[in-house]
């Protein structure tokens, strides 16, 4: 829950500007990007995701570093990814 996980924005939902499809370690899921209203992300941008919401824009190097860190912590990240996979946000 406290883990910020990096995801790459794949597309913004045409009917819902506050919802984006992101790719997180190969998992594609919808997340809410409403908290980034001031600088909305575009496809190809990386965001840091907390509980289904993008909380900040990050660059690709930071995303890779964050992923390294997360894969290193093992089970906690696996649990978080499994939870993300099970979620359905709209």
């Amino acid at each position: 829950m406290c883990l910020g996980i990096p995801g790459e924005v794949v597309e913004i939902r045409p009917d819902r500007p506050d919802i984006a499809t992101v790719d997180v370690s190969g998992v594609r899921r919808a997340i809410n990007i409403g908290l980034l209203d001031e600088h909305p992300p575009r496809p190809g941008d990386w965001v840091l995701i907390h509980v289904g919401f993008a909380l900040s824009l990050i660059d690709e190097a930071e995303a890779r570093a964050a992923l390294d860190f997360l894969t290193g912590i093992g089970r906690a990240y696996d649990d978080e990814l499994a939870a993300l996979r099970a979620s359905s946000i709209d």
């Binding site: 910020g4 907390h50 509980v51 919401f53 979620s87």
Partner: peptide, 29 residues
């Protein structure tokens, strides 16, 4: 649930039940 938004979906699917989200966390959540 993974996200509070998942709770909204459960609420929509169960109109005859009351869905209560246990909201916890610091300013990140």
């Amino acid at each position: 649930v993974y996200s509070p938004l998942d709770s909204l979906k459960i609420a929509r699917a169960n109109p005859d039940r009351q869905v209560v989200f246990m909201a916890i966390g610091f300013e990140t959540t």
